[in-house]
Design a protein around this nucleic acid. Sequence first.
DNA 1: TTGTAAGCGTTATCAT
DNA 2: ATGATAACGCTTACAA
Lengths: 347, 347
Amino acid sequence: MQIPPSRVTINDVARLAGVSTKTISRIINQSPLVGEETRARVEAVIAETGFVPSAQARALALRRNFIVALVHDGSDRGIMEAVEAGMLRGMEGSDLSLVLRPLQGNVAAHLRAFVDQHRPSGVVLLPPLSEMDELARLCEDMDTRCVRLGKVRDGHGLGCDDRPAMAVLIAWLVRLGHRRIGLVGGPESSLTAQQRELGYLDAMADHDLDRGPSLIVSGDNSFESGIEAGRLLLEVSPRPTAIVACNDEMAAGVMQTAGRAGLTVPDDLSIVGFDDTPLAERIWPPLTSMRVPWAEMAREAVSIIRAAAEQPQADRAFTAELVVRNSVLPLGDQAGAAVPSSAAQSG
Amino acid sequence: MQIPPSRVTINDVARLAGVSTKTISRIINQSPLVGEETRARVEAVIAETGFVPSAQARALALRRNFIVALVHDGSDRGIMEAVEAGMLRGMEGSDLSLVLRPLQGNVAAHLRAFVDQHRPSGVVLLPPLSEMDELARLCEDMDTRCVRLGKVRDGHGLGCDDRPAMAVLIAWLVRLGHRRIGLVGGPESSLTAQQRELGYLDAMADHDLDRGPSLIVSGDNSFESGIEAGRLLLEVSPRPTAIVACNDEMAAGVMQTAGRAGLTVPDDLSIVGFDDTPLAERIWPPLTSMRVPWAEMAREAVSIIRAAAEQPQADRAFTAELVVRNSVLPLGDQAGAAVPSSAAQSG
DNA sequence: TTGTAAGCGTTATCAT
DNA sequence: ATGATAACGCTTACAA
């Protein structure tokens, strides 16, 4: 275990600039209580020496690390890319770093150990972990800021309008002439998935359509479960003309099943996803999907963590938005519905 | 900027166990120089108190943080998932954490600042950054272990047999009866991409086939560039019967273009990808692709970083492997080629 | 506006 | 096998 050589420290800079270390510290921390001249002189020295404050030393003194942890259980790979990107964007201009923390097994114990050891500046919880009040409480106890992504019971957390969004999506399909619409739900334990399923039920009821249990199959957000769900749904008689999945991965799975069964999408079967992950536009035909602004939500999560102010984490509402691509065929029952399946938006 | 309360420290444990702090330190660090009894007593106290050593304090004392940084430029999202997973697996059982570090602009300066500030235990460079000798040298200068993923000039780094692998892939297509084979190359500056292109040229030359410049289009590893490359390649006359892309994203782009042009894959056009990322099996038809063991390579990278031994980073060779799915049609020119396009392996 | 001194929680050195 | 003590590089009282 070699000990590497040390580099320019705050003391070197102080000596070279002829001031005290505290003054350097003030400058590092952007304190306004420093004279113009002094500041200029010090900054010159910093530039010359290439001094970079040690994150470890600061962390020790401040009792918190300059990291934000993205905590998830790996069950929904699709949204990770957007969340990572959003968090990274939110950390620009700060000295924060993004730590990836997948958790399995005894989730609470692992999270506690992690926070205990690393004292992150903040923790961002992804569904379904974000739905576990225990984890949020745990962070609070260790006074570590914690932001939960996705719908959460008591209004904490950054979520979007999953339920009405799904209802809007279904209503849109109905306007296009679809009557038999199948649903591939997420894990039954997931609140987000429940909301989306409720939205489906709302809209189907509104339009007085069959929403019997045979039209609803639950998956676990994985591609594989989408394949299986698709298989079940295609056996239903009469066959659904459209299948909506609670995330894009599962929608892709359904598409896979349709393909294997010799069905053409959207001619023989319309398929819609949810979240609008990168996968949606990469598959063929491009998948129509309900866009959930995961990146924006993640960005906001980091902002909350950065904000020193102890504002009680406003329940800011994000809005999902339909992205029409080529996986839905208008059946033309009601000509009013103008959006043609060819209204793809990719270049 | 509140200072959180402190928790159980090494001193508390020392006092409670009636030994010195150094002894606790020895136990934390698995030093063998501790008596049986003492160790037992101390471990009991640790368990009771729930003591967790502070990562910050250790980092300060050891002058290196318990983090490994995954450094990339975001240009090849496809392989990130596998690399992240592999690194995470490699870190299991250690107290290392994974930090995501996308770099843009003045890459060298940013990397230097990052390493200076965080003193990571190691850095893993992804292509094309891994091809920049400057970055590796930079890490060395700051004695930070650095592992480069992908083919690298002087034999450093963990790469796989891109060139022969691509040659094998092309030979396989030829055996299936394909004669006009287009290539979507990666960025021209990328060594990995160059290797793959050379493999293509090798095989085409071997079989005495047309490998004129019109059959080779360079992309930048993005889906969009695949779309564009596909457009160019489909205009070539006579049209290629097969198109090989240097990664799956671009292959998906080609598929997109084929779809828009009304071509059916694989009936009208065979398409093959490279890397075998999750995308490959999620699109329709499932994409035949050359599997590059990114996860295994990433896992090995972390092992190297963990290994205290200063072994000169063996140039361990990884092997790519053809994964046959449904995106290639045998033309039957030479009946000997037995692998039918229906030899998909997904369940 | 600036400086002094005492930590923060761990590890290495050198004793014993 | 174990312990006292001085780092490690920075921050916050509290002065001046």
